[in-house]
Design a protein around this nucleic acid. Structure first.
Lengths: 155, 155
DNA sequence: TATTGTTATACTCTATAACTATA
DNA sequence: TATAGTTATAGAGTATAACAATA
């Protein structure tokens, strides 16, 4: 047994666990997205499609959700004309999902709203750490891309 | 109009937007929590209660969710004996929510599972940035605390 | 047969509105 | 009257299982 003592409120010598920070940040992002009338899952879909169209199945595996979830999620985005379903003539089982211009605009607005909220929160960092905190977040994209690609290939 | 051109896939000079990174990280955290059979909202509740018991209403405002949502969320945690509802004798409208020992154990397991997953992802950072990336995440707790306290007081 | 996507169904998280109990 | 919490209800995101269409 290496467990030291149980019932410590929080490991006080550390400023917190990274996963909990992500969980808390995610809620603030979710609230900010409300102004663009987007949910966090919808935001993930639009952000991924902004990097290029994708088949429904590719979207599912890259976002790590089930195929039926993508169908439901995209249904809502198509109804709002943020995404377009485009059948693939060469393989009629496949359907390409494409971000519309309106979808791109909404995504940009969402990015702005979320960015402002994160700036607000970062405002509580000491001035010299503020930029570093936000840039640190940005850097995770590359690692996430590599991690996702490894997963998708593996699956 | 300052908009440069529309239809740029992603601002290539920047490594990504911070809000999108949070959105993507949140999904990975959510998946990791599956091993502890916790959802992201449940994880937020347990993490907050680990810092001290709280009334239902206080929990709602600090987690930025509605009172009925807390009721539903806590129902599930109480059913699994991770949280206990403890009536306040001095004001019988109030109900204190307390993390049980089992809840503390599950939270610890969840922290570990999430931490491992984030370590995996951070493994794709250059070696010299790996630690800094995870520590950067941890630092957000303080800013989030300050931001939340300002909100709760304001509301 | 295998693959792509959808339908059917169920469970959780979420909110608003209305209600109960207590102050 | 005002406050704390719950119940009623509805909508979105999620999954698994079963299905249709196509390869």
């Amino acid at each position: 047994m290496t467990k030291p003592r149980r019932r410590e409120p929080v490991p006080k010598e550390s400023p917190g666990l990274p996963g909990r920070a992500v969980a808390r940040l995610a809620k603030r992002v979710e609230l900010a997205l409300g102004f663009a009338e987007l949910s966090l899952p919808q935001y993930r879909v639009l952000a991924l499609l902004a990097e290029g169209s994708a088949a429904s199945s590719a979207l599912a595996s890259r976002l790590a959700v089930s195929p039926p979830s993508i169908t439901a999620l995209v249904d809502g985005l198509v109804a709002r004309q943020l995404v377009e379903r485009r059948p693939d003539p060469s393989d009629r089982r496949r359907i390409a999902l494409v971000l519309t211009d309106k979808g791109r605009r909404v995504l940009t607005d969402a990015d702005a709203a979320v960015g402002e909220r994160l700036d607000d929160i970062a405002g509580y960092f000491p001035p010299d750490e503020r930029m570093r905190a936000l840039d640190g977040l940005r850097l995770w994209h590359q690692a996430l891309d590599a991690y996702r690609d490894a997963r998708v290939r593996g699956a």
